[in-house]
Design a protein around this nucleic acid. Structure first.
Lengths: 212, 212
DNA sequence: TTATACAAACAGACGTGAATGTATATTTTC
DNA sequence: GAAAATATACATTCACGTCTGTTTGTATAA
């Protein structure tokens, strides 16, 4: 096989990305060789090096094909929470969980990014971007919780920063757990999980009462 | 440096493990070479291969030096919850969070296991063990929540299984977030975080009411 | 319209470096 | 002097990046 038409070339690019996604998820990023990817896609390393620079480049391309749940959350929360910050957050959190549970590709990339990626020196760019997204996500949550306190939706003694961490940890933890072992119905229980968590916040004890 | 006494040999073994722990945490497991470890410990690969079989062996040894939070939780929860399952769980969850926040080595191993380890074919043994621990931890939590429902500490409509997943996701998410970026005081807020979560469970809405 | 020149899209071979595992040399303790 | 505890030297493997070859789509000029 040699010179293809524009569309055929794009097709092999997609095939390579699909193969990489599968290999990364099955064997981990570090243990996946470029030859693995090429073979899994039915091509050779020649095709890989034509379309991409190296493994890190492939990895970024794989990641850029989807919108991560956290990115989606960030985009949604950027809008004005309006007069019902907590309700707004509730809707968004459920939406994010649903998004993950409905889209296979989102699950793949999520699992690869958070479970199949070691801390090697490559991928630093992506990790920094991820950290920044994480930070901005926390800031947005903090703003929302501040607004919720101001509007009386949450007791005055809840610390917006700590609460933002808790919320993020809860949602993130749920997604990680579910992606690794599909042992409960995330989609069906998403509203209850979010509601129960928010109920806890609404009735949160004063910090001084919680000791030990 | 060559022939040492029994105690000196044991000392180099410890040095190697310490070095490996540092390297794994800084550069990731896959990107850490045996020479990196040897050099970081002030020795050569000869010492490494004398004390260990390969990198996977070192990794297991590093992990076996500490009790993972999840393992600790498993151990604690194995005892009889008594007449106050929720209070028992509360104490244990706080204890686990405190444990992590107080012990540097626990943090290291936790971060290595959950953030710096790719899905390579080595380490399969350890991963299977981890999965089993995870599963048993979920079972124990489920039993506790069942008991809590039976004793009227939780409303009858809470699903013990889903609640166990939620609890585990919350605690695990908190630990992961905190280990990766020490941007809040986990130790100080641990009781409030746990109490707030449990408050949510006590006042949990009926599942049918949570839709959308 | 057709011939021609060029470049796109790969496949395959090659060289290289790095990490691994092993085998051996070197000390030192007992 | 034997064996433990390491350093050093060596062989092998393996993935990576590069280079080159081959074929065909495609633009251009006649």
């Amino acid at each position: 096989m040699v010179r293809r038409t524009k569309e055929e070339a794009e097709a092999t690019r997609v095939q390579l990305l699909d193969a990489a996604e599968r290999c990364f998820r099955e064997k981990g990023v570090a243990s996946t060789t470029l030859d693995d990817i090429a073979k899994a896609a039915g091509h050779t390393r020649g095709a890989v090096y034509w379309h991409f620079e190296n493994k890190a480049d492939i990895f970024e391309a794989v990641c850029e094909r989807v919108v991560t749940p956290m990115q989606a959350m960030l985009g949604d929360l950027a809008a004005d929470p309006g007069s019902d910050p907590l309700g707004y957050l509730r809707k968004d959190a459920i939406h994010v969980l649903r998004m993950l549970s409905e889209c296979e590709r989102v699950q793949s990339v999520f699992e690869i990014k958070f479970c199949k990626l070691d801390g090697g020196p490559d991928f630093d760019r992506l990790r920094r971007a991820e950290l920044e997204t994480h930070g901005r996500c926390l800031s947005m949550l903090e703003v929302i919780f501040e607004a919720a306190v101001r509007r009386g939706q949450l007791p005055a003694h809840v610390d917006p920063k700590v609460t933002a961490e808790a919320m993020h940890a809860f949602i993130g933890g749920l997604m990680r757990s579910w992606v690794e072992r599909h042992d409960f119905d995330l989609r069906a229980h998403a509203p209850w999980l979010v509601d129960t968590f928010l109920t806890g916040l609404r009735n949160a004890p004063v910090p001084e009462a919680s000791t030990d």
